[in-house]
């Protein structure tokens, strides 16, 4: 393979990986924008999304099979179910804590993450479960590089979801209210916005995107387990910070940037796949130290 081919192949890999990161990062950033909470459990909701997606796929398999239609339906069902689950978690665990000290709410989020992980661990016995839809291995050749149909579908679905989110946030009443709450919660309340409802909508949308990413990851990589959300949660947070936390376009950009950085980073001699995660976390630390507002974030008064 020539260098150009390798680089083009890594570009494709990076965009696929970046789509996952971006979808998960969006939920992080939206929740942070509206309630100023770092939802540590977000990566685990992605994991729950993958398991619900697998369940949904087995439910619809009889009617539509486990091919493209089945997977699409499973993604939608998982988004719906896990979206409501996210709202439920917000009501149970986070809503009572929103006025508590910052440390307490961070630890509550950590506890939610542990409950989800150990809950799924107990239910599945900690086993890696096969997620094997019949999507085949076909693809197209573009010159020297091979692109799987799965990769195209994945990037396409991610793009559609992000476009839908952008329209939702910029064009609808709820989106407007969401932006208002993220700017000034108290003032929005005075303007007649039902802040609790907006928070619920935010959790629903953010969690649904994570669930979509989880189901797609399951279908793409072919297996799921209870711990799959940990690393991607960290990476998605990194992506959100690179883009500027609280900024929706920032999360999309940050996800793609991180995905590309990682896939090209593994090609640098001496880094390789073993050091891939060290590479991303170093990027995170450097961004936080030198440009904590990220690429597209606005500078914000520190709130301790």
């Amino acid at each position: 393979m020539t260098l150009t081919t390798i680089l083009l192949q890594q570009l494709v890999n990076g965009l696929v990986l970046g789509s996952f990161y971006a979808l998960v990062a969006l939920g992080y950033t939206m929740v942070f924008g509206v309630v100023k909470l770092l939802n540590f459990a977000h990566g685990d909701l992605y994991m729950v999304g993958a398991f619900i997606g697998l369940l949904a796929l087995s439910l619809v398999a009889g009617a539509v099979g486990t091919s493209w239609v089945g997977v699409g339906l499973a993604i939608l069902l998982s988004m719906l179910a896990v979206g409501f689950f996210g709202v439920f978690i917000e009501r149970i665990a986070y809503a009572p804590m929103l006025k508590a000290p910052r440390l307490s709410i961070l630890i509550t989020a950590l506890a939610v993450s542990l409950v989800l992980q150990n809950g799924v661990l107990s239910l599945t016995g900690g086993q890696v479960m096969p997620f094997s839809p019949k999507l085949g291995f076909a693809g197209i050749n573009l010159g020297d590089i091979f692109i799987n149909y799965k990769q195209i579908a994945l990037a396409g679905a991610a793009a559609v979801l992000m476009l839908a989110l952008e329209l939702f946030v910029s064009r609808t009443q709820y989106g407007r209210a969401m932006r208002a709450v993220s700017v000034d919660k108290d003032m929005s309340e005075l303007m007649g916005i039902d802040v609790n409802r907006i928070i619920a909508v935010t959790f629903f949308v953010g969690t649904a995107l994570a669930a979509a990413a989880g189901t797609m990851a399951g279908a793409y990589y072919g297996s799921i387990w209870y711990f799959m959300g940990f690393l991607i949660g960290l990476k998605a947070f990194t992506a959100a910070v690179i883009g500027g936390i609280g900024s929706i376009p920032g999360a999309m950009l940050g996800g793609l940037v991180l995905g590309l950085l990682e896939s090209f980073g593994t090609q640098i001699p001496g880094i390789g796949s073993a050091w891939k995660d060290v590479f991303s976390f170093s990027v995170l630390i450097l961004v936080l130290v030198f440009k904590p507002t990220g690429l597209l974030g606005k500078s914000e008064q520190e709130r301790m």
Binding site: L38, R102, L103, L234, D277, F281, L288, V289, P292
Partner: peptide, 16 residues
């Protein structure tokens, strides 16, 4: 850094 960023940075450091 703000406290929640610190939490994530220390997490990343632990993983490194």
């Amino acid at each position: 850094l703000r406290s929640d960023y610190l939490a994530i940075v220390t997490l990343g450091f632990g993983e490194i």
